[in-house]
Design a protein around this nucleic acid. Structure first.
Lengths: 104, 104
DNA sequence: TCGACACATAAGCATACACTTATTTGTCGA
DNA sequence: TCGACAAATAAGTGTATGCTTATGTGTCGA
């Protein structure tokens, strides 16, 4: 789970889509696959990459494996971002919203 | 300059190193190359990718081209992060520092 | 104005990566 | 216990990517 693992994991649009789906709530691999034009092994491989990056974590339950967002990976992205905070533009609304949410 | 451009740009360790160097201050391509075991075209190509992602911007001055961090790209990463703020771990110190800095 | 320099572009190459189909492993319910 | 299902792994393939050397383009100073 290095910075490299994370950014390489996030570089693929399909993986970001998977991650986004999981952000809505935990889900098993088959449910995750629904609506995506992709094979079962492909999803499995993507999940493996995301898991290595600690962007998701798995919870085995019988023959199902539920996946959910792992905050650890996000924290590392945030850590990377923090290094460049001097360059964060004040005008970016997204950041302001961010701040508001965190300030509670 | 899409989300995809950004994350693909950040997926390469050499490009992140270049970006980090630029975060210390603007620099031309040749200066940027110093200390890196890489050819001149390689740096030029990396800068092109970073520029497309709006992670850096260029300023031509005579025969030099100075590069510097473009906040635009960082803002997009922040925007992506913001979507998952529900998962941000309170315990992550980096995030707290982040918050402190932003709260000024 | 001409040689040196800064940088970009062209072309080619080896490797990494995302995907596929086939198969394996493991768990459930009838 | 056996057939169906969930998921992972194996193996192979086309394309993307990061690198190189060679060359082009533009700007400077002697």
């Amino acid at each position: 789970m290095t910075e490299n693992d994370i950014f390489r994991a996030l570089a693929d649009p399909t993986r970001r889509a998977v991650f986004e789906k999981l952000a809505a709530g935990r889900m098993n691999a088959t449910a995750l696959r629904e609506g995506m034009a992709i094979s079962q092994p492909a999803i499995s491989q993507h999940l493996s990459v995301l898991r290595t990056a600690r962007l998701v974590k798995e919870m085995r339950e019988g023959r199902f494996v539920f996946y959910e967002v792992d905050p650890e990976g996000l924290a590392l992205v945030a850590g990377w971002m923090a290094k460049y905070r001097a360059y964060w533009p004040a005008r970016v609304d997204a950041l302001k919203d961010l701040l508001k949410d965190m300030d509670q």
